[in-house]
Design a protein around this nucleic acid. Sequence first.
DNA 1: CGGATTGTTGAGATGCCTCAAGTAACGTGG
DNA 2: CCACGTTACTTGAGGCATCTCAACAATCCG
Lengths: 247, 247
Amino acid sequence: MPHRTALRSTPSPSEGNELRFCGTCAFSRACLGEGLDKAALRELQCLVEHIGPFQPGEYLFREGDPFTAIAAVRTGTVKTFSVDSVGREQVLGFFLPGEVIGFNAIHGARFPCSVMALDTVMLCRFSFPSMAALATRISSLQSLLFRLLSQEIKKAALLAGDFTADERVAAFLLGFSRHYASRGYSAHRFTLAMPRADIANYLRLAAETVSRVMRRFQDEGLIAVNRREVELLDIERLEYLAQPVLR
Amino acid sequence: MPHRTALRSTPSPSEGNELRFCGTCAFSRACLGEGLDKAALRELQCLVEHIGPFQPGEYLFREGDPFTAIAAVRTGTVKTFSVDSVGREQVLGFFLPGEVIGFNAIHGARFPCSVMALDTVMLCRFSFPSMAALATRISSLQSLLFRLLSQEIKKAALLAGDFTADERVAAFLLGFSRHYASRGYSAHRFTLAMPRADIANYLRLAAETVSRVMRRFQDEGLIAVNRREVELLDIERLEYLAQPVLR
DNA sequence: CGGATTGTTGAGATGCCTCAAGTAACGTGG
DNA sequence: CCACGTTACTTGAGGCATCTCAACAATCCG
């Protein structure tokens, strides 16, 4: 199943651009780093469809949608959430560039949550059946998929512990810091793409509590925060605070 | 990589017994149900090592152990937990017969948590590299592994929501009920293998709270509970209570 | 039988939530 | 470019669900 002639919402750039563009993606990063060679990567590129841009608030997938593909975030930030029987939203996670959406939809064959753009978002879409077929031929790809799935289990379990508001907020901020640092961006300064309400919902706190904790962190010289602009001033102490969460 | 001549703690029963014994296991159940034929199942059997019995309190794996194999619970109940920097235990999950341990260890190549027997436990151990290799030849096995991993993500996310003590306890009890029901056991009566402290820790509640909630459930005619013996008297109302958790 | 473990029950403490009000930024139309 | 409404965020006060501490009861096991 080598080539896929699927519709693209965006014309595909040249291969050279592809490799540069997607250097931060979970697939190319892990693949290249783990012995998946250029030839294999080229086969992956045959599968990818670049879709977007999506506008803030736009749905990328809706809860209940049939699962046909996983997608790597190329640019922007997305949130996943589900809506309970009473109509309350539960934010399940945020995905930054390079992270992969849809692993929790394999079992069940439907998306168990909705996926929404928080800002302008571009995605790399991979047909999952095609990718699975490719994975039977390229064992390093199979291995990568297993690892990414396994990583997702650990991520999901992270916030399940009974942690204090301080621990949660510190871990949340450090999560961004580490993500950006590992991709060559600043570990100290970044912009949060989501409103406080979403952060609070994700951390299972009230929005007011998040606001208060951040205020106190600022008073204590740990961070400088203005609306969605965040600067981490004392990462060491933040890591100490977040230790119970991040282990 | 057909046959593995690994050491076995227990002599392996005949193949006929195998198929009967393991009828409730995630692998044979899902495999047979999903078109994985007897021949493929026989190949799986070449990989399996039956290990055990383990005694209550015995470690099956320790946090930090190198990851080489996944294991299906054959009999008994196990808990997984990690110990934080302050020495407090965090119970991550319980595994009943037919469930598979170790999926969260793939990423990282080490067990991120310890695994302990709660009662007398027997396991079916599968070398993960061997199973992955087999999965490249038997695509239905690969697909099964993807599904099981994906299911584990959803399980991990379940308890992460901000739920009340009542919702958590109801969902916890129904989890056992459903597991047993789907395997041909009573959905109404069962024995909890773990102490209240472990239940409470898993649900992120105080042991006293679990005790009180169960007492109230009993007063309200939802359950009859004596120590570790549980009878569910009104599953419908329990499901109503647990709805926010189980969706 | 006696000590240890496990589970239950009560009383008081507390971390976070809810409610309410106020402030700052943003986009829109005049 | 400014007035305006809207949304996002902050701050304070009081309430509640759950935790902690403590005592006790039941069960297990040597």
